[in-house]
């Protein structure tokens, strides 16, 4: 196992005490595979994603228990310096909102160069070499005329292009695991498919593992081999995507799957989920 989360418990402190967010989450992910975590907002899926490299600000977050084993080491226990080597270098992230996730006052080049300078000792430190590497990745994620985009600022790009830049930045460090937290939620539907296809192609090409966080079950088939369904801070179902789609066990999963709109389903009204206990 490359990543194994065991009984992770996280809460958020406020004036009136600690509100639990994760009630003992357990997950595992093999090298090179894709795992999707699906659930509604507030289910704890993003908290889980951020918790893996301790990106949740403490306070208010409180790590109350459990282990996050990455390549055999518990990331909850490693030193800050060690953690920084893992962040970006071994585990890279892309986030939901590309327009706010890129720093508005730095150029595309400067933001990607940081990643390469930090995590790619194989790339020579000269401007030309770094530029070449950045252009390679911008090209890989499907940005036209990448050399001309280097000195653009984020606000000069469209949302889809910004997310491609985020992906290029994440991949430029050649991470073992890419955590994509709702990578297409903020984008137009047509762009969503392009970005997801690009992600899948790149994953197969680079052989990295992907942890895909989404609220949308519909995008998972064909993208992720395994899926974990989260509900109210717990993993209620975890297993092979096909199998869960065919034979969901937990009532929440059933409801979630029932919500996927399908072509040819004209008579049915779209389903909504009421509270399930």
């Amino acid at each position: 196992m490359m990543l194994e989360i065991k009984d992770l418990k996280i809460g958020f402190s406020s004036e009136s005490g600690i509100t639990p967010a994760l009630h003992g989450v357990s997950l595992s992910l093999e090298r090179g595979e894709t795992l999707a975590i699906v659930g509604e907002s507030g289910s704890g899926k993003s908290v889980t994603a951020l918790a893996i490299t301790r990106l949740l600000p403490t306070p208010p977050a409180v790590y109350q228990g459990g282990e996050i084993l990455f390549e055999g080491r518990d990331l909850l226990k490693v030193s800050d310096a060690e953690l920084r080597r893992v962040r970006g270098g071994k585990i890279a992230y892309i986030f939901q909102e590309p327009s706010t996730s890129l720093n508005p006052v730095y150029t595309i080049r400067s933001q990607i160069a940081e990643m390469i300078e930090l995590h790619r000792p194989d790339v020579p430190k000269s401007t030309a070499d770094i530029d070449a590497e950045i252009i390679h990745w911008l090209d890989a994620v499907g940005i036209n005329e990448p050399a001309r985009r280097l000195h653009d600022y984020p606000h000069q790009l469209s949302g889809g292009m910004q997310q491609r830049v985020m992906i290029a930045m994440a991949l430029s460090a050649r991470p073992d695991l890419l955590i994509a937290d709702e990578p297409t939620t903020a984008l137009d539907v047509t762009i969503q498919a392009q970005i997801l296809n690009k992600l899948r192609d790149l994953q197969q090409e680079l052989g990295m593992a992907v942890l895909l966080i989404t609220h949308n079950f519909a995008i998972i088939p064909g993208l992720a081999k395994n899926v974990a369904v989260m509900y109210r801070g717990k993993v209620v179902e975890h297993g092979n995507t096909e199998q869960i789609l065919r034979d969901p066990q937990h009532p929440y999963t059933k409801a979630l799957i029932a919500c996927i709109p399908r072509l040819g389903d004209k008579r049915r009204r779209l389903q909504t989920i009421e509270s399930i206990n």
């Binding site: 958020f12 004036e15 009136s16």
Partner: peptide
């Protein structure tokens, strides 16, 4: 409003 704060100090 944080979920926990609700109700306690209304």
């Amino acid at each position: 409003i944080t979920p926990g704060a609700l109700g306690a100090v209304t």
